[in-house]
Simulated assay, not measured.
Amino acid sequence: MFEKHVTQVRNWMFDQALPLWGDVGIDRVHGGYTERLKADGTPDDPGFKRIRVIGRQIYVFSHAFCLGWKPGLALAEHGFHFLVKHAWLGEVGGWARRVTTDGQLMDPTPDLYDNAFALFALAWFHRASGRQDVLSWALKTVEFIEAHMRHPNGIGFMHEKPAVGPRQQNPHMHLLEAALAWLDTQPHPRFETLARKVVTLFETKLFDQANGRLPEYFDEDMVPLNNSSGRITEPGHQLEWAWILGNANRLLAIDTRATTRALIMSAEANGVDPISFATYNQVRNDGLVLDKGSRTWPNTERIKAHIAAYEIFGTDPRGAIGQSLDLLFSNHLNTHLQGTWVDAYDSDWNPCQGPIPTSTLYHVFLAFAEILRVSQLLESNA
């Protein structure tokens, strides 16, 4: 059965998704990538391009090239040229948040999330291309984040500058993911220092050790908000952190096993539907389900978390992987336009209609690549 799932995953990646997004997903007029598609597969231009999406697509095509899909390198380079030409605002500006369709500056706000995905994209493009100039861009990015995005009180980083609204865990998660991607590509002390800072922040401030859950929103001192928003947790983010901390365990030689286990256990206990195995959108910190709807991405993060558990604890991930793949292929990825997705289902399991967001491909591709990475070892242990 698992071999069937692996074949299904490989076919979706290389026969459906990559040919589609390597075609209509490329903006060959203005550069970069399309932000989203209409249901018929034609570009749906909202008038802007987000830097986080550019970064995610550079990652996808770079990783695809590393897996043997030869068109990937040129497609990743296409996005890299657009990124450095239109989105870098210098040493005090970092990467912009968004530009217009044709690359004009639209929102110069320094956003930690977008800068993290630029850093992540650079790691993978460097891995695919071997270009040393990409490393210099990455080091400039880290320098900007350290110099201009660190919170004034010294606890973590601002999610944007100037910061508006509560502080968030999510941008820190992707910053750690990006730093670890570089350590796995070309180790450098700047990336290691950054990664260790974020892991320490997670262990001392972000993670609620008492109930094994991860709040989403915090006050200025990184204490969970003292209101209903401060009680919100997202199972998908807990599972995503579990996978990232699994990489930290390997690359930084630090023991994240207890935290990884707690994140997965609490997400599985209250954040996964016991019948459909859909990963819920939101759960309160006492386990009460707040939103039984399910987007595509939390289900892909469940796959990655169980692969991390397999590599750390030796637990067989095939049951959970199979459950999430069956859900994805029966619902989210079961579209008339192969290689796309229904991005979200509501709490009554009705599909939420709308444009197809390019940003989701990063989640699906990365989870599926992880399945391919461990598949031979799993099959040999069957």
Rank of each mutant, 00 (worst) to 15 (best):
T101Y: 05
V142Y: 03
H63F: 07
G79N: 05
E370S: 11
D326A: 12
R231K: 14
R196I: 02
T259R: 12
G90F: 10
E379F: 14
I254A: 07
Y33D: 04
L214D: 05
H237G: 07
F202H: 01
M222E: 08
L175E: 04
G319S: 14
E146A: 08
W88M: 11
P298V: 09
H148S: 07
P108M: 11
T200K: 12
H336E: 13
R302C: 07
Q169E: 11
H151G: 03
Q323A: 13
L290C: 10
F207P: 01
V283P: 02
V374T: 13
G339T: 08
N115P: 02
V92K: 15
S266N: 08
Q238S: 14
A39F: 07
Q338D: 14
E234N: 06
T233A: 10
H148L: 02
I26R: 13
H151F: 06
N170L: 07
S276G: 02
L378S: 08
D286K: 11
A305N: 01
Q376N: 14
N247P: 02
H332K: 06
S229L: 15
G47Y: 13
A116N: 02
T100Y: 11
F191V: 03
H30N: 15
N299Q: 13
Q353N: 09
E268D: 13
K304F: 04
Q282C: 12
L119W: 09
G271P: 02
V84C: 06
F144V: 00
E220N: 13
P110G: 14
D348N: 11
G41F: 09
C352Y: 01
W297F: 10
K205C: 07
R97K: 15
E240S: 05
L183S: 11
L328G: 00
P166N: 08
G72R: 00
